[in-house]
């Protein structure tokens, strides 16, 4: 993959984790480009959601409108799927959504580092959701949580088979949940980098790859939002198992 477009192109180089202040030693606490871009994501979130709403205007300003839109979007999603009981976990899900959306979008900035294209990041996010759902489900429902695997609307003979399938699918969830996000983010950015490499090589004809980059960038703008949305709505749907285990 790295040799595809000639010697100048390293589409995967953008995903390398590097210490921020030089050196080669990478301890668990070393500030890296991951630290930098996660910090920027927090700053963007603060700018948008806290500084943008500081005037508490009845007639909202642009940034306040955006903040309110995000709030209403996630709030309505949880209310529609989980009902009132799910709103208790609104801050948690909103944090996930905000982090993923902002990180995805920041990844489109040239020379940036896309934290959500890292397996380490998405797997931790997905596992956190998986464990949260499992723990909440067990704490709230006790053994009744196992009803998630016992589909009462199916014919009795089929239920054991379905239960096995359900259990497998339940434990595969964090894998698909995390790989989906990471794969989408990585693929789009790698493609842009490949085209950018072409642009560097082709000289006068470089406007072809530049147009292609613009097109892919437009597509990626949609993808970053959709992937944040998909991750969040899947979290909310998984959460529904914990809140209403019998309700298939």
């Amino acid at each position: 993959m790295a040799t595809e477009g000639g010697p100048n192109i390293h589409p995967m180089e953008q995903f390398v984790v590097k210490p921020l202040f030089g050196g080669h030693e990478l301890n668990w606490y070393t500030p890296t480009n991951v630290t930098l871009w996660m910090g920027i994501a927090v700053l963007v979130a603060v700018t948008l959601l806290i500084i943008g709403t500081r005037r508490r205007a009845i007639v909202p300003t642009r940034s306040q409108l955006l903040a309110e839109g995000l709030y209403g979007f996630v709030y309505k999603m949880i209310e529609d799927i989980n009902g009132k009981a799910g709103l208790k976990y609104f801050p948690y899900i909103f944090t996930l959504f905000t982090f993923i959306l902002i990180s995805n979008t920041l990844g489109l900035v040239p020379y940036s580092f896309t934290t959500t294209s890292q397996a380490a990041v998405t797997v931790v996010l997905a596992l956190a959701v998986f464990l949260t759902v499992t723990i909440i489900g067990l704490v709230k429902n006790g053994v009744g949580f196992l009803k998630v695997f016992w589909i009462s609307s199916a014919p009795l003979a089929l239920r054991p088979i379905l239960a096995i399938i359900e259990i497998i699918s339940y434990f595969v969830r964090p894998v698909s949940h995390s790989i989906r996000l990471m794969g989408n983010m990585m693929a789009g950015h790698a493609v842009i980098k490949v085209f950018a490499g072409f642009a560097g090589v082709l000289g006068l004809f470089s406007f072809f790859p530049i147009i292609a980059i613009m097109a892919v960038l437009g597509l990626e703008l949609i993808v970053v939002f959709i992937q944040a949305y998909v991750f969040t709505i899947l979290t909310v749907i998984y959460m529904n198992d914990a809140l209403h285990p019998g309700g298939h």
């Binding site: 070393t30 991951v34 927090v42 979130a45 806290i50 801050p91 990041v121």
Partner: peptide, 24 residues
């Protein structure tokens, strides 16, 4: 690189969660 990334992710999420749930 995993311990490093996970450490900073956890820090980021906790900070973000705190800021969002307490203020925003």
């Amino acid at each position: 690189t995993y311990p490093n990334q996970i450490f900073w992710l956890v820090v980021t999420l906790l900070v973000l969660y705190f800021l969002l749930s307490r203020i925003a």
